[in-house]
Design a protein around this nucleic acid. Structure first.
Length: 278
DNA sequence: AACGGATCTAAGTTTACCTCA
DNA sequence: CTTGAGGTAAACTTAGATCCG
């Protein structure tokens, strides 16, 4: 085990050396101050990213215009109303999921899910005026496509967002929110990994400290029984684990005496050197 | 150069929904 | 079958940074 590898977790949020599979994606967008420029560049190639991904939706759904309202009927009753609105950063929820339908959701095709799970109150104005917000649950297909997209790039430029929203039959705002939350989850996961590394580091250091304390006690006993050490301050006696010399940490004449005295307190790195206790 | 609006993101919070005991 | 707790994720809010006219 190498000390630096354990403790250099880079827990500075966004500047880490942990080898996390998601890390690269995260750092691709770390410097978001430059993201506007990056987005402008990356938008040029976005059309090649998902050349053939579909949700199995009808062409009319795929190319639905913003603000279009689709009403589906099942057994003669209005079963769902799907709104596609744009331009509202304070998006009100435009879909409602029937609880009896949700459990079946993942077994349905995207089209079926859209038909049966997206519902809205009769009065959209009421919805916007503060009725309980309803939460859309993404289908497996939608989640998969979003995840794939996230692997390609952790942030989206407007063009990418628009294209993805169209592909998924979601509002661009929903795609945007998903990416925001996804980045947050990635970062949280990364932080948890780093936390675990720090715990390991702490435990190793604690163990080593305990071992060194024990060694110190033993050396104090040696000092008492061996008069040759009497002139050295007991509390600063140390033993180099590699050459097994004893020093007092005061500085001079360290190289020639078998009882070396170091200029500076020596920090023994247990991760890069074999333990003296072993 | 300074200013203000538009836009984006991170961070934190709220809340709908789901699972499970 | 119902219920409450806890977890998850979608949606929201806020603050700060950057760009651009």
């Amino acid at each position: 085990m190498v000390f630096e590898g354990v403790c250099n977790t880079g827990l500075s949020l966004g500047s880490t050396s942990i080898n996390n599979p998601e890390n690269d994606h995260f750092h691709q967008s770390h410097n978001h101050h430059h993201q506007h420029k990056i987005n402008k560049l990356s938008s040029l190639k976005f059309d090649h990213v998902f050349p053939s991904l579909t949700l199995g939706l009808s062409s009319e759904h795929k190319h639905r215009a913003p603000e279009e309202i689709v009403v589906s009927k099942i057994h003669g009753e209005i079963e769902s109303i799907v709104l596609y609105r744009q331009g509202s950063s304070r998006s009100t929820v435009s879909s409602y999921s029937n609880s009896s339908v949700k459990r079946e959701r993942d077994n349905l095709s995207a089209e079926e899910v859209e038909r049966v799970s997206s519902k809205v109150s009769d009065d959209q104005d009421q919805d916007e005026e503060g009725s309980a917000r309803k939460k859309l649950r993404l289908t497996k297909e939608q989640s998969t496509i979003l995840e794939d997209s996230f692997k390609e790039h952790t942030t989206l430029n407007p063009k990418q967002k628009q294209a993805l929203a169209k592909q998924l039959n979601l509002r661009p705002r929903q795609v945007e929110v998903w990416f925001q939350n996804r980045r947050a989850r990635t970062k949280l996961k990364q932080t948890e990994v780093e936390c675990e590394e720090l715990k390991k580091c702490y435990k190793t250091l604690t163990d080593e400290n305990r071992r060194l304390q024990k060694e110190l006690q033993e050396l104090k006993v040696v000092k008492i029984t061996a008069p040759v050490y009497m002139q050295m301050p007991a509390a600063t006696l140390t033993m180099c684990p590699s050459c097994e010399r004893i020093g007092d940490g005061s500085g001079e004449n360290s190289s020639k005496s078998p009882f070396s005295i170091r200029a500076k307190p020596h920090f023994y790195n247990p991760f890069t050197h074999p333990s003296a206790a072993c």
